[in-house]
Design a protein around this nucleic acid. Sequence first.
DNA 1: CCTCCATGTTTACAGGAGAAACTTATGCAG
DNA 2: CTGCATAAGTTTCTCCTGTAAACATGGAGG
Lengths: 221, 221
Amino acid sequence: MRETTDRPYHHGDLRRALIGTALDMLAKDQNWTFTLREVARRTGVSHAAPYKHFRDRETLLRELARIGFIRLGESLTGAMSPGLPSTRAHFMAAAQACIGFACQNPGLYRLMFSSDADKTIDPQLHDAAMKTFGILLDLLERGQRDGSFRPVAVSALAAAGWAQVHGLAMLAISNQLLEEKVGATPIPAALEVLLDGMCRTDCPVHVPASGGHSEHTCPTR
Amino acid sequence: MRETTDRPYHHGDLRRALIGTALDMLAKDQNWTFTLREVARRTGVSHAAPYKHFRDRETLLRELARIGFIRLGESLTGAMSPGLPSTRAHFMAAAQACIGFACQNPGLYRLMFSSDADKTIDPQLHDAAMKTFGILLDLLERGQRDGSFRPVAVSALAAAGWAQVHGLAMLAISNQLLEEKVGATPIPAALEVLLDGMCRTDCPVHVPASGGHSEHTCPTR
DNA sequence: CCTCCATGTTTACAGGAGAAACTTATGCAG
DNA sequence: CTGCATAAGTTTCTCCTGTAAACATGGAGG
C-alpha cells in the first residue's frame, strides 16, 4: 500500500480504502457518529471524493454493516470448534463469541442492528444478515435433532436465543451491565438460565404452541 | 397554558416546554436524531434559547432518558395487576409491557439505553434507571420467595430476564423480528422459553455459581 | 496523437452546534 | 416610585457537516 508517498491523483482503490478507514474508526468509536468528511480526510482525499463511490453516507453505512455481518459470521463459525462436548456448549461458545464481537466492535455492532442499516433497502445487506442468522438456526436445528434442545418450534428457540445474545451484547457495549445490578459475571450466568429453558430435561415442560401458556405446577420446597 | 397566543418574551416554563416538544418528536421518530434547533423552532423560541436551560444537547437527552425511565417504570407497575395467577404471569405481563413501551416510543427507548444517556455522568439519570430496574429485581425476588423461580443467584435471573426483554425490544423496534427468521409471534414464544429456564421444575438444573468461567470485559470508551 | 470518461478536486450552499453580545422583563433595595 | 441586577430570550457569529455542481486529470481506445 503506497499511502502518504505519491498520491497519484487516482487513488487506485479508494472505495476499499474508505471502507477500511471507516471500519477503523468504527472499531474504536461507540456511535458510528463519524463524519464522511473525516473519513475522507483520514483517507487522504478530498471531502467530496467518497461520493464517487457511495451515493450518500447511508450507503456507506450499509456497506459497513454488510461487512460486519460477514465478520460476525466468521467469528461464530470460528468459535464453534468441533471439539466441544455438547450442542449446549456450542451455543454457549457462539453466544460468547457474538458478545465478544460486539464488545470489540461496539460501533460496528450497533450500526449492524440499527435502523440506519435498513435491510429492506439493500438486498445484499439483507442476504448477509440472513446468512449469519442461518448459523444460529443450523445450530438450533442440530441441537433439536441430537436431543439437546426441546422440541418446540425452532423459531421460538431462535427468537429467545437471538434476543438474549443481542440483549446482552447491547447492554454490555452500552456499559449497562453494572455489577450492582447483575452481578460480576452476568453474561455466562444469563446464558445458563436461558439454556436451562432451551435444553431438554427429563421432565419436559409445556409446548408454547400458540397464545396461551399452560399452568405450571411448582412443587413446594 | 398559553401557547400560541401572546408569547410574552419570557416563555414562563420553557424548560418544560422544550422537554415536551422533544418527547413528542422522540415518540414518533426512531433515532432521536432531532436537532436542537428544530426543538426550539417547534417550541416557538429562538434556536439559542434552549441553552439557557440545558448546557448542551446531551444534557437535554439525558433528561429525556430520565423521564423515559420513570415512564417505563409506571408502565411496568401498571402492567402487573395483582389479579394475575402467578409470578410467572407477572413477569410475562411486565416483559410485554416493556416491549410495548419500546414499540410505542422507539426513539425514547433507544435513547434510554444508548451511550448518549451516560449514567455515569448524571446521578439523577442513574437513580431513575436503578429504580426502574428495581421493579424487575423485586419481582424476581418475590418469585424466588414464593417458589416460582429457581433458587439461583437473583442477579443471574435479572441478567437473563433483562437481556431477553431488552433484546426483544431492540430487535422489535429495529424491525428485525421478521417472520421468516423467528416466526409469527416471536415475543411470547421467546419469553416462554426463557421462563422455562427461570422457573422451578421438579427437576432443578445446575447452578451457575459465581465462579465465572470466561472473561468478558468490555472496554469502556 | 486525440478524445472520452471514471475518478479525483474545488467551490458553493443550506443547515446545525454552540459561543458571545445584546435585549427585555421582573423582582428587589432604597 | 426609581433604578439596577439578573434571569431568560434573541441576534449574530464561527466552525462544522452533507451534498450538489463545475472543473481537472490521467489512463484506455480509436
